[in-house]
Design a protein around this nucleic acid. Structure first.
Lengths: 200, 200
DNA sequence: CATCTATGAATGAAGG
DNA sequence: CCTTCATTCATAGATG
């Protein structure tokens, strides 16, 4: 009776992201997106709408909250059973053909930076709230393989990345393809993904 | 039987405050503490850790929940027909008309946090048109700065009362001191804590 | 042992 | 951005 841990009450008063939506958002966040611009939010929400109802403000708030809470980072994990992630979704006939495609190369679950002090007292960040909920189930040991992520099939060009190797700078800020910071060999440096590649 | 902190089943799934911890928290709440600051939370948790395992987030959540529930404890009282049953779910999340004991003139339905004015988020969105990924370069893992500072600036006294006693500083809400005396019971060391500035 | 209840935990949404 | 409120999910524990 605990299989379903997603949304239960189909309350239509507050956005309740589906597992897919959360996944995408998490990926983007992991990729480094912290404060999406209006256009980015627009695109993201448009993309997410394929998995269920969602508005721009939802995306906006999501990032705001996620960033703020990710920052709090306390420590110690608590459990690995009841994760808000859940694999089951309501499936009301909306999205059904997108199982785990929005997969990006993830990094080990230990990359949260410690709550660094701001040099001086000032106002310390809150340190209580929980941070991101990275389920172990999501980690896949990304050796060096860059999956063909089709996160945002934008209007025209389709993300055709198969093994794109991070192309830093390159002369312009308008990358037209996914670029990863291949951190396969690195130790700490987590994966960095150029978001502009998503057209965001 | 509530043995003590350690508890029995080593239930590590969710924090289970001990009687002492609850007592302290309740006292603090009664004393007027509603939303402790980060520092306060840290101190409180540190203090509470003497009675059992507890994290900052636990304290944080405790106050959040306690406050929220105290306020939202105004259930709806059907005119005449009082059916306290219906489980935990009340009529609906539309807890707007809190009447009853403290009858209060309510404001129009469009309360501040109830209003659905998206203007706010739109405005904000427009402001955030930038994203950075440079501050993420600091992944240092400082030696877990264990703040083994003093728990509370205690005065250590022996009063026959275990009630709160706050002293408001003259001239506005400058400094309040709340002292607890032996909040704990049993073989636990007497607890004295002194809150300054409306808390710790 | 089923169920209802109290409450810890999580997170969406706003306010400032 | 930071802080706070509101709503909801999950579960331990009391109840019968």
């Amino acid at each position: 009776m605990e299989a379903l841990s997603g949304r239960v009450g189909v309350k239509c008063g507050r956005w309740n992201p589906t597992a897919e939506q959360v996944k995408v958002l998490t990926e983007l966040f992991r990729a480094g997106l912290r404060t999406p611009s209006t256009e980015q939010i627009q695109r993201i929400s448009t993309h997410l709408s394929a998995f269920g109802k969602v508005e721009s403000k939802n995306v906006f708030y999501w990032f705001q909250n996620h960033k703020a809470r990710e920052r709090h980072h306390h420590k110690k994990r608590r459990r690995g059973a009841s994760s808000p992630d859940s694999g089951s979704n309501d499936d009301d006939g909306r999205a059904a053909a997108h199982e785990g495609d929005a997969d990006l190369v993830l990094q080990p679950p230990e990359s949260k930076r410690e709550a660094r002090s701001y040099g001086h007292h000032h106002r310390l960040m809150t340190c209580y709230v929980r941070d991101v909920v990275e389920t172990e189930a999501m980690w896949e040991r990304p050796t060096r393989e860059v999956e063909t992520l089709e996160l945002f099939p934008l209007k025209s060009y389709d993300l055709e990345v198969d093994k794109v190797r991070y192309v830093r700078g390159g002369g312009g800020e308008q990358c037209r393809e996914i670029s990863f910071f291949d951190v396969a060999a690195g130790r700490d440096p987590p994966l960095e993904l150029r978001l502009c590649s998503f057209g965001l």
